[in-house]
Design a protein around this nucleic acid. Sequence first.
DNA 1: GCGACAACGACAATGATTGTCAAAAACGCA
DNA 2: TGCGTTTTTGACAATCATTGTCGTTGTCGC
Lengths: 131, 131
Amino acid sequence: MSEGTAVRNTRQRSAVSALLAEMEGFHSAQDLHAMLRERGERVGLTTVYRTLQGLADAGEIDVMRPPGGEHLYRRCSEGHHHHLVCRACGRTVEVAGPAVETWADRVAAQHGYTDVSHTLEIFGTCPTCTP
Amino acid sequence: MSEGTAVRNTRQRSAVSALLAEMEGFHSAQDLHAMLRERGERVGLTTVYRTLQGLADAGEIDVMRPPGGEHLYRRCSEGHHHHLVCRACGRTVEVAGPAVETWADRVAAQHGYTDVSHTLEIFGTCPTCTP
DNA sequence: GCGACAACGACAATGATTGTCAAAAACGCA
DNA sequence: TGCGTTTTTGACAATCATTGTCGTTGTCGC
């Protein structure tokens, strides 16, 4: 459904996608733009932003909005999951919580809410960063 | 520990606090500033921001960062809880999920993370806004 | 009442993100 | 393969919430 989009395959889109594929942690748009430049890829910052937005809309990457910072993007495993992030070093573990999903849906339904979604992030200090 | 703060009781701080006490939903700093002006209270925008930050740090109000918008502040019930927010009209229900808290802590502990906190927001369309 | 010191506030600065629009590239089709 | 249409690009300007600055003002302890 809704195939009027006709997304075109461009060098820039591939470059961003490829970069995300080999990156491990979360990175900001400006970060990714800088990395592409260092590689010699000629991609505009505006394009990086738009490409990331597109990928996020398509569900191919995850977006995190840390308090007081820029948006961070990351290529993640498919399906719904959440993140356990170290405050100090940023190390991230993907976690799945089926019980949480169920709980959220049930609570929303109890209040008559429909078309439910949710956001959940867990922050902590990872073993390496614990003194 | 750390009681060198010596928070002073000022007219402006009281005004912001009082306004929040009678407001129901979430409001942005700019919103609150405009309301104070309409009331004849003379409070600077910078001060509103700083006061809200202070209250948030003290845990007296909650902050929500909706995607693509400004920060929203609200005076909430005490203790830890989450929000079920209508995407259309902004109506908010406070929900408590002890099981979620436990789950988050357990998951974090399993990965060796300490000093754990988390953020959780549920979005949906409330009964009134459902066609 | 007085002095020290935090809080205020008008304004400037910051900085990520988005809008603009002419030029370039990609795709469908013959 | 060549051509026209349509999307995409990207340099730059614009936006706008939030934060920094710093002289002034008001509070609080004494």
